[in-house]
Design a protein around this nucleic acid. Sequence first.
DNA 1: TTACCACCTTAGGACTACTAGAAGGCAAGC
DNA 2: GCTTGCCTTCTAGTAGTCCTAAGGTGGTAA
Lengths: 144, 144
Amino acid sequence: MSYTIQEVAKKMAISTYSIRYYHDHGMLPFVKRDANNNRVFEDTDLEWLHLIVCLRQTGMPVERIQHYLELVQEGESTVPERYEMMKAQQSRTLDEINDLQNHLKTINIKVDHYADVLIHHKPDSFVPSNIPEAEEHDVYQENQ
Amino acid sequence: MSYTIQEVAKKMAISTYSIRYYHDHGMLPFVKRDANNNRVFEDTDLEWLHLIVCLRQTGMPVERIQHYLELVQEGESTVPERYEMMKAQQSRTLDEINDLQNHLKTINIKVDHYADVLIHHKPDSFVPSNIPEAEEHDVYQENQ
DNA sequence: TTACCACCTTAGGACTACTAGAAGGCAAGC
DNA sequence: GCTTGCCTTCTAGTAGTCCTAAGGTGGTAA
């Protein structure tokens, strides 16, 4: 199966700008062109792109993704480094999900509060946000 | 309690650059200065900042956050708009958590695969990513 | 045949939200 | 008096994405 850039954008739920950016920066090395110089995407290109989108949306910078894709093409000797990269990305993503779930609690409190104000005519509190004790971070070190 | 910018950065797990950025852009309207022109943060400022960090990290643009904070200061008449904003943010965040959990599955497959290659000496597959059917999006509309 | 639409292309600039560096002020300690 | 270390402001740079301009191609329809 072949796809146009538009079809791929729709399938992956990203913009055509981003796809061209990834292609122009060497992250989609197997994409072909047709007689009119238009990009032609095959299923393997979609698999590459799927991984790129996955890594990008879990916070890996483009430069690291480029490095990872080079490692894949270098072959089996690079498996240890790729393993470490994926483990790091795994724990990053778990942390991010955890952070988002904590943030969701804060947002839920806001939603519930405003519903109370609107439906039960409770007074609006000016306090913008209550900080749960557990959300304090004391491990953060700047400039390291 | 009063805090320096450094202490606040540590507490909130963000950089001092970001805090200054938020302050300079009017998002921390109550922050005082000491005799040496240094920023002095009180507990209410931490509450504001906590909400800013929460909204920012769940994807709300700075401009929208500024607007929200203006609404809070305008008083109770703006509760309906604030309610809509928080509900939108709630569903955005739920979607993002869901996306991350799907991406995590892809990463988990990679980690498991590399572990297999390293420990059980299975061959490395060149296939970068298998695209689950369920992850295809056909609702995406570009330029809207 | 000409007009028009819808898609593609490249090049280049604008934008957001930081991020970093330079240069300097002030207070405490030796 | 000097160093250290924190703070300040100002300016410039960055990543990644978005957008526009200007143009090419193919299909259809009056």
